[in-house]
Design a protein around this nucleic acid. Structure first.
Lengths: 207, 207
DNA sequence: ACGTTTGTGTACTGAACAGTCAATAACGCT
DNA sequence: AGCGTTATTGACTGTTCAGTACACAAACGT
C-alpha cells in the first residue's frame, strides 16, 4: 500500500557504526553519516530518529551480532574449551571476533570494541549508551565464563579458580588492548600481551 | 617591563584536562574550556594556541606528573617491590596514582588514564595526540617493568618471566579497567579484577 | 488508471562552533 | 609620572552543526 524502503536497515547501521568508530560520536556529523550510508538527512531522521537514534540502534545491532557470534566460537565440548579460549583471545585482540562483519585485512580501528569506545567517549553523560555497552560486555562475560567452566571440567584450568572472575579479567585484558592499540602499538605487541595473559591462566596444579 | 599573567599555567591546564576528561575532546567547546579555566577566549589563544594547543599542552603536563609520581611509588628496595606493585595496581584502578592531583573522593572519571581516553577518541586521526599518549604509556611500562625486575631479584616473581611482558600485561589490565569502569561497574568489581591479575603473576616455583 | 500512503532528497533555520581582532588594563622601566 | 610592552577581555566573523519542513517519487489497493 505504500512505497517500500530502498535501503537495507542493517547495512545502513553497519556503515554508520564504521563511521562512529572512525570519528567518534561527537566527531561525526549527520552529514558524515549521510555520506557513509548513502541516505539523505530526511531518511535518516524518518528511519532512525536522528544522530543519537542511529547510534543507539547501531549499538543494538552490534549487540545482536556479538550475542550471536561470540558464544558460537566459545561454546562447544569441554575438551577443546581451552583452545577455543586461546583462539578467541587472539582473535578478539586482532579484531576478528565477528569474522563475517569485519573486513578481511584486520583493521585496528575495527578491532576495538565499538561499545567500549562509545562508552568511554560519551557513556558518562549518556545513560542509554552506557547501558547498551554494559549489556555487550555482560554477554561476553557470560560466554567466556562458560568456556572457562568447560575448561575446568576438562581439567585444563584450576577448578578452584572463580570462572567469572577469570572471565572479567580476560575481557579486561581484551579491552585494554583496544587502548594499547590506540597508542599505536602493532599486532605483534598485542599478540604478545594476549599470549602472556593466556599463559598466566591458573592450570591444574599437579602435586 | 610588561604585564604579568594573572593565571597559573599548570592550574589552567589541569582544569582543562578535567574538562576534556569529562566531555571528551570533540565534546568540549572553547567556551567550555574558558568557563572551566576562567580564562577568556583571547587569553587561551594567546597562551596555548587554541583548543588543540590546550589539549597537547595539557597532555604534556599529564605526562610530566606521570613521569614524576608513578616511578616514585614503584621505585624502591627489592624487598618491598611486590607489595608496591600490588599497591600501584589497586591505586591505578581506582584513580589515585597521582594522589596530589586527584580529588580525595576517588572519582571514576578522574581514574581513567587521560592519555588513553584521548588516544582512543582522536588518536587515529591526530598523530601528535597518539604520540603523546604512547609516551605516557611507555614511561609507565618502564617503571612497572623495573619494579617487576626488583620483585624478581627479591625472589617474589618467577625470574624466568619476561619483566617487560608482564609490565605490558599489567598495564593493559589497568587500561582495560578504564573501559570496564566506563560500562558502569563499581569499585568492587574493578578491585576484584586487579586482585585477580595480581594473584596470577608467576611466583617463584618451589620444587 | 488514479489516489493514498510512505520513502526520499533538498533547502532552510536558529544555534553553536572555532578562531580573530581591536580596545583596554596592568605592570616595569626610565 | 609617562611610556612601551604584554595580558586580558568581549565582541565579531564565517562556518558548521542538528534538526525541521516541504516538495517530489514510488508503490500498492482499488
Amino acid at each position: 500500500m505504500a512505497r517500500p524502503r530502498t535501503f537495507d536497515r542493517d547495512h545502513v547501521l553497519h556503515a554508520a557504526e564504521r563511521q562512529f568508530r572512525e570519528s567518534g560520536y561527537n566527531g561525526t556529523s549527520v552529514d558524515d553519516i549521510s555520506a557513509a550510508t548513502g541516505l539523505g538527512r530526511g531518511s535518516l531522521y524518518a528511519a532512525f530518529d536522528g544522530k543519537h537514534g542511529v547510534l543507539v540502534q547501531a549499538m543494538a545491532g552490534y549487540f545482536d551480532r556479538l550475542g550471536n557470534v561470540a558464544p558460537k566460537v566459545l561454546a562447544g565440548p569441554d575438551e577443546g574449551a581451552l583452545e577455543r579460549l586461546h583462539g578467541y583471545l587472539l582473535r578478539a585482540v586482532h579484531g576478528v571476533p565477528l569474522a563475517d562483519d569485519v573486513s578481511p585485512a584486520s583493521d585496528r580501528a575495527a578491532a576495538a570494541c565499538f561499545a567500549g569506545k562509545m562508552a568511554l567517549e560519551i557513556g558518562a553523560s549518556d545513560a542509554e549508551v552506557q547501558r547498551l555497552a554494559a549489556e555487550c560486555f555482560a554477554v561476553l562475560v557470560m560466554a567466556v565464563a562458560e568456556c572457562v567452566r568447560a575448561a575446568q571440567r576438562n581439567g585444563d584450568i584450576d577448578p578452584d579458580a572463580d570462572a567469572e572472575d577469570l572471565a572479567y579479567l580476560l575481557l579486561t585484558v581484551i579491552r585494554g588492548t583496544d587502548v594499547v592499540g590506540a597508542y599505536g602499538h602493532g599486532p605483534a605487541r598485542l599478540t604478545q600481551i594476549a599470549e602472556s595473559a593466556f599463559a598466566l591462566l591458573p592450570r591444574v596444579s599437579r602435586h
